[in-house]
């Protein structure tokens, strides 16, 4: 029995290890190819083990680091501002909805919920933001469309307020003469840090990974986030060679190591999220499973 169980565990673990490998192998291919020399890539293609280690792609990128830093700056600005604004608007909306005594709360909840069922599609949204709000080529185009991108977050937060903050606590706050706003930020918010952290984390990832809004609203490459820069380099073959890597003209004739630069930039774009992943993984898993249960 013991031996049988042990063999079974070995088998199960082997299957899972194989699956786990399949999940990260593409990343290994990416990183290993980015540190291979261009000539090796031309001869042997991208491979999982670098045959001749060379950091030339990273050296080229370092020469034109300004563009990457700029894109990083945009991404960080949009992510921080977007997440903070998003949390503020979401919690301010969810708290009154969670109050049993709030007039019209069912109608208001349906008003929000309905946006999950039905939407007008891309064209009216695009025309609204470009024709009426003139968001085109502004940083707001990257922030505003995703502010309450998912009405689900409002619902989840409302449920959290409803189930974890006792009515007595709010009542006693009122007895002490605190106004609604004071109750909200002195009592409700400090008790709701777990849900704020979870939704904040999700919005951070959403903003960090967003490239769609940049794709439709930006033509000015100075406002490119890191994702938009990556997107442009991948889809527009000409774009990379048009970038100025501080090389002289005759160097260009010799040819940029475009095949490795391309991957090196992708590595630079993906590293931050992989680097911090182990630290937020726990909250992330918790958030996913909360989100799956009806809010």
């Amino acid at each position: 029995m013991q031996a049988k169980e042990r063999a079974y565990q070995w088998f199960i673990n082997a299957v899972m290890a194989l699956l786990a490998c399949m999940c990260i192998l593409p990343f290994i291919l990416l990183v290993s190819s980015s540190i291979t020399s261009q000539s090796m890539i031309i001869a042997n293609g991208y491979s999982f083990l670098p045959r001749e280690i060379s950091f030339e792609a990273y050296a080229y990128i370092w020469n034109d680091a300004e563009r990457i830093f700029n894109a990083y700056g945009v991404t960080i600005l949009v992510t921080v501002l977007g997440t903070v604004l998003s949390l503020a608007v979401t919690s301010l909306l969810a708290y009154p909805l969670s109050r049993k005594d709030m007039p019209h709360r069912n109608f208001l909840a349906f008003f929000i919920f309905f946006t999950m069922l039905f939407n007008g599609g891309l064209v009216p949204v695009y025309l609204l933001y470009t024709q009426f709000f003139e968001f085109k080529n502004t940083v707001w185009a990257l922030i505003f469309p995703m502010l309450l991108t998912n009405a689900f977050y409002v619902m989840i937060m409302r449920t959290f307020f409803q189930t974890t903050i006792p009515v007595e606590v709010i009542e006693s706050g009122k007895m002490d003469g605190a106004g609604e706003l004071k109750i909200f930020y002195k009592i409700v918010l400090p008790l709701s840090l777990p849900i704020l952290a979870t939704i904040g984390l999700f919005q951070t990832i959403n903003y960090w990974n967003d490239w769609f809004n940049g794709l439709i609203f930006l033509t000015d490459s100075r406002l490119y986030s890191i994702q938009n820069l990556l997107n442009r380099i991948l889809l527009d073959v000409q774009y990379l060679s048009s970038m100025d890597f501080g090389t002289a003209q005759d160097d260009l004739m010799a040819g940029l190591p475009t095949e490795t630069i391309r991957l090196a930039i992708a590595v630079i774009g993906v590293i931050p999220i992989i680097a911090i992943y182990p630290f937020f993984q726990r909250f992330f898993v918790k958030g996913l499973t909360v989100g799956a249960v009806k809010g």
Binding site: L93, G120, L127, L128, F144
Partner: peptide, 26 residues
Amino acid sequence: YSVLFLMMAPGLLYFIINNYLPMFGM
């Protein structure tokens, strides 16, 4: 409840602009 309504105002306004106006935009 005016303060509570005011708290909801930004979010509701957002849904009107971002979701309901485009519905009529159809």
